[in-house]
Design a protein around this nucleic acid. Structure first.
Length: 544
DNA sequence: ACTCCTAGCGCC
DNA sequence: AGGGCGCTAGGAGT
């Protein structure tokens, strides 16, 4: 396979290295060069997809595959199956320190000038050697390819944006918090609620956003509460509580997804958040701009497909339990996972009495519940599903021994020290908190193996889906074809011309099957999807 | 003025 | 007394 490494040179020039051949280009000529080479489907090797790909997309150039050196470097340094020593070499210290670039500041790594001009070909050679020398060559290679494909998806989604109707969003805001106020003022409906709360608590200047003021107002009213969480307040019998709860809910919406959010993140009818692939240590994505991964359900009606287009929304039913079945090779759980509802499958198999018990027990096992109903169910289910429950139990034990764990494809967990990044100068912790720390790390490693492998499945899914969508479209730039506009751990949204919706829906299902086959070759586990074809994201059906 | 942290809530 | 994130305001500290 052809690999073409791109490095930035001073003066807006690019160094192109392909096997032994070197070539220099002006940055401005890069899109046409890439477009010309793309029919050979080379793997473009670059330091950071978020830096190289957006200008190509802006020029109408889409690439089939890449290798993101920054993501791969980070991954290989922690992968238990890789010898990170082989990464050491010229400029390698810079690669260690690379942080993610951001759309607002794509050219700056805030390291130094050398980091601006790292030699991609040198690092690529080292990374290839690490993978080739590892004990898990094929799994690591798959993981790196999936990670890089995810980075392409992220850049493409930011480029395309989520179709967003500002008029719909503003209508919702008007209903929920009142008309748009002048800068610095509260919307009318919120102000009215504040007045109600102040009257009820006989506190004319009470700031309901202040925890301290609220606590003392509650104390004066005779309520000794430890916190002001809505769940705590809900139980209090006082006329000020209802308006306070309404205020808190509406104010939160106004502050996080109100007009200033629209002003900052929505333009030309598109919400363009910034995604950070592998932004979380488990390999899940994060989003450091726009809060894309927590779009509140109440504003989702504003996500509306263009005229003549529609959304295909697909989410995986019970991703993590299915992943656990696959990676542990638990035949009983895999058998129960064969239908559309894994929890129901457990009920029908006689493992638990109700679907609710199945869910509570399984989630408890993956999160490390120790007490209560959930803890009790875990004990019973362990006998029924020894391989699956044994796997998470073993991961927890490893964590409690301060050992790192790994996902199916080989992503390593951060060490206890990294995960809790304690300052080495801190005084040594007493034995009790030492134990608590180990237990907490054990719960983290327990969840890491499942959440991380789930993230790997999801990466394989969107990588495969991305390619299927591309083949469905007619000639034209990315945004004139069916394309991904949103990805959220176990869910995707595709924006597509109406006429292709059925084909897109089929593609999401085929891609899910392909992902399952890639990860769990020997043990077939079903990954059924809930697929909806909807005009608005809010209308997508999402049972559990 | 600025940074950093926490509480609380949103998403999975 | 169950894991992972981001965002906001308040509050403490510099």
């Amino acid at each position: 396979m052809t690999r073409i490494a791109l490095s930035r040179l001073p003066d807006e020039r690019v160094l192109v290295v392909e096997e032994e051949r070197e070539l220099e280009l002006a940055m401005a000529d890069l899109p046409s060069y890439v477009e010309r080479r793309e029919p050979d489907a080379p793997r473009w090797v670059w330091d950071d997809t978020a830096r190289w790909y957006p200008p190509l997309l802006a020029a109408g150039v889409r690439v089939a595959r890449c290798h993101d050196l920054r993501l791969a470097h980070h991954l290989l340094r922690r992968a238990p199956a890789a010898d990170a020593g082989l990464l050491v070499g010229e400029q390698s210290a810079h690669w260690d320190r690379l942080g993610p670039s951001t759309p607002s500041d794509p050219a700056l790594f805030s390291v130094d000038d050398t980091a601006e001009h790292l030699r991609a070909d040198l690092e690529d050679t080292r990374q290839l050697a690490v993978v080739a020398a590892s004990t898990e060559e094929s799994r690591l290679a798959l993981l790196l390819a999936a990670e890089s494909a995810g980075a392409l998806v992220a850049a493409e989604m930011t480029h395309a944006g989520i179709p967003w109707r500002v008029d719909v969003h503003e209508r919702l805001l008007a209903e929920l918090v009142g008309a748009r106020p002048p800068r610095g003022a509260r919307p009318a409906r919120l102000e009215a609620l504040v007045a109600e709360v102040r009257t009820a608590f006989a506190a004319p200047t009470l700031n309901p956003d202040s925890r301290a003021e609220l606590l003392s107002a509650l104390r004066r009213a005779g309520f000794e509460v430890a916190d002001i969480r809505m769940s705590t307040l809900r139980g209090l019998d006082h006329p000020g509580i209802a308006p306070l709860l309404r205020y808190r809910q509406a104010a939160h919406l106004w502050q996080t997804n109100g007009w200033s959010w629209i002003d900052q993140w929505v333009s030309d009818g598109r919400f363009r958040p910034s995604y950070q692939p592998a932004g979380s240590t488990t390999g899940r994505w994060s989003s450091n701009g726009g809060g894309a991964l927590s779009i509140p359900t109440v504003v989702r009606p504003a996500a509306v497909a263009d005229d003549g287009w529609t959304f295909v929304v697909a989410d995986v039913a019970q991703l993590e339990p299915r992943v656990l079945a696959g990676m542990s090779g638990d035949r009983a759980l895999a058998r129960n996972a064969r239908g559309a509802d894994l929890y129901q499958g457990m009920v029908e198999d006689g493992a638990v009495a109700t679907r609710g018990d199945a869910k509570l027990g399984l989630l408890g096992a993956m999160y490390g519940a120790t007490s209560g109903e959930s803890g009790r169910l875990v004990a019973g289910l362990t006998r029924r599903y020894p391989a699956a429950f044994g796997l998470v139990e073993e991961a927890a034990r490893a964590g409690e021994r301060a050992q790192v764990v790994r996902t199916l494809l080989g992503r390593g967990s951060p060490s206890l020290g990294e995960a809790w990044d304690r300052d080495p100068d801190d005084p040594p912790v007493d034995p009790d908190s030492q134990t608590r720390l180990r237990r907490a790390y054990g719960r983290f490693t327990r969840n890491f193996v499942v959440q991380g492998t789930g993230a790997e499945w999801a990466l394989c899914w969107i990588a495969d889906l991305r390619n299927r969508l591309w083949r469905l479209g007619d000639d034209g730039p990315l945004e004139s074809r069916p394309h991904l506009v949103f990805f959220l751990h176990d869910e995707v949204v595709v924006h597509t011309p109406v006429g292709l919706a059925d084909a897109v829906a089929a593609a999401t299902v085929e891609a899910a099957a392909a992902a399952g086959g890639l990860l769990f070759r020997d043990l077939a586990v079903d990954f059924p999807l809930n697929v909806s074809v909807v005009t608005s994201y809010a209308d997508a059906g999402k049972p559990t």
